[in-house]
C-alpha cells in the first residue's frame, strides 16, 4: 500500500520551473530517497508534500490525505526534519522537545514520557539540560531529528539531514534512519550524496532540473548503465584517433570523446585496461591519467545528464 502517492506535481517561481511534473509512489515502511544535485527540486517537492507550498498543478496523497484538500490530515501523520536546524538555541534540548511536543498536540505525562524516550533515542539524555546553542553541529542535527519523532508519525520527511556534519554524526543519523524504518515508519529522504541513497534506500528517484529522470531500486537504476565500469582516460595525442582504435579492443562496449577526455564503458576494467594501454602504445599515444568508476548511482546520473551529481 502506498504511503505517499505523488501525481504530476508542478511548482514554478516566476519563470523558474522548480518542480516540473514529478510523480512517484512511496510504499509504507520503506525508505525512499530523492537523489539529485542542489537545485534539482528536491526541497521544493518535499515542501509541497509538507503543505508548506501549494502546488501549481497536481496533487499528492500522504496516508490517503490530499496535500491540497486535507492539509491538517497530512500534517497529523507527518514528521518533518528540515534541512536547517529549526530549533530554539536559547532553550535546552528538553525544553525544545517539550515545546515541539506541545505543538504536535502532546500534553502532560505522555509528553514528558515521550520527551524522555526521544532523548534516549537521539542519545542526548545526559546533555538534555544544556542549551542547544552550545551543542555541536551533529548534536543539533540529532535534536532536529528528535523533534520530528515526538508524535510517532507514520511518515517522516528528512531533507538532507547530514549536510555539514562530521562523519561520526553522519553515521549515527544514517543508523537512526534505518532504525526508524525498522519501527515501521515510512521515510522520504532527500540527499545529494549518492552513497547515502545507495546505502539506505529501498527505492530511489533521481531528480534533475525539477524532473524525475530515473526511478527504481538501486539495482534497477544501476542497470541503466549496464553494469559496466566507466573508465575515464586522458591521452597525450588526438583523442578521436585513439577512440577509433579502442572501439575494437576486446571487452570495450563503448568509447566517447568528451572535453579532451575519453570515456570507455567496459564490462571489466581490470581486463580491459592493459589492452587499452597496449593499443595506445601502438598508436604512439601516451595515457596520462586513468579514473575507474564502478557502476553506481553517480555513474547513472552521469550517464543520464552528462554531469556529475555534485556539479
Amino acid at each position: 500500500m502506498s504511503a505517499i502517492e505523488v501525481k504530476n506535481l508542478h511548482k514554478a517561481f516566476g519563470d523558474l520551473k522548480a518542480v516540473d511534473g514529478v510523480s512517484f509512489d512511496v510504499q509504507q515502511g520503506e525508505i525512499f530517497s530523492l537523489l539529485g544535485p542542489n537545485g534539482a527540486g528536491k526541497t521544493t517537492t518535499i515542501s509541497m508534500l509538507s503543505c508548506l507550498l501549494r502546488p501549481d498543478q497536481g496533487d499528492a496523497l500522504v496516508m490517503g490525505h490530499s496535500i491540497k484538500a486535507d492539509q491538517m490530515g497530512v500534517k497529523s501523520v507527518l514528521g518533518v526534519v528540515p534541512q536547517e536546524i529549526a530549533l530554539y538555541n536559547d532553550l535546552s534540548a528538553r525544553e525544545n522537545l517539550t515545546f515541539w511536543g506541545k505543538m504536535y498536540g502532546l500534553r502532560g505525562a505522555p509528553l514528558k514520557q515521550r520527551v524522555d524516550e526521544v532523548l534516549e533515542i537521539i542519545g542526548l539524555t545526559e546533555r538534555a539540560k544544556d542549551r542547544v546553542g552550545k551543542y555541536s553541529g551533529g548534536m543539533k542535527r540529532r535534536v532536529n531529528i528528535g523533534v520530528a519523532l515526538l508524535h510517532k508519525p507514520q511518515v517522516i520527511y528528512m531533507d538532507e539531514p547530514t549536510v555539514g556534519i562530521d562523519p561520526q554524526s553522519r553515521r549515527n543519523i544514517l543508523d537512526s534512519v534505518v532504525a526508524l524504518k525498522n519501527q515501521g515508519m515510512t521515510v522520504l529522504y532527500t540527499t545529494h550524496y549518492m552513497e547515502e541513497a545507495q546505502e539506505l534506500s529501498d527505492h530511489i528517484a533521481i531528480m534533475d532540473t525539477g524532473k524525475v529522470i530515473a526511478y527504481g531500486t538501486n539495482a534497477e537504476l544501476v542497470k541503466i548503465v549496464g553494469q559496466m565500469d566507466r573508465i575515464t582516460l586522458t591521452v597525450s595525442t588526438d583523442g578521436g584517433r585513439v577512440a577509433e582504435a579502442w572501439k575494437v579492443v576486446k571487452g570495450v562496449k563503448q568509447v566517447k570523446a568528451e572535453d579532451g577526455t575519453l570515456v570507455v564503458l567496459a564490462e571489466d576494467s581490470n581486463q580491459v585496461l592493459p589492452r587499452l594501454f597496449e593499443a595506445a602504445s601502438t598508436q604512439g599515444t601516451r595515457i596520462t591519467s586513468v579514473t575507474i568508476q564502478e557502476p553506481n548511482l553517480e555513474a547513472v546520473f552521469l550517464h543520464l545528464t552528462g554531469k556529475a551529481l555534485r556539479d
Partner: peptide, 8 residues
C-alpha cells in the same frame, strides 16, 4: 516553517 508543518 517547521511550526507550519505541525497540525496547527
Amino acid at each position: 516553517q517547521r511550526l507550519l508543518t505541525t497540525a496547527t
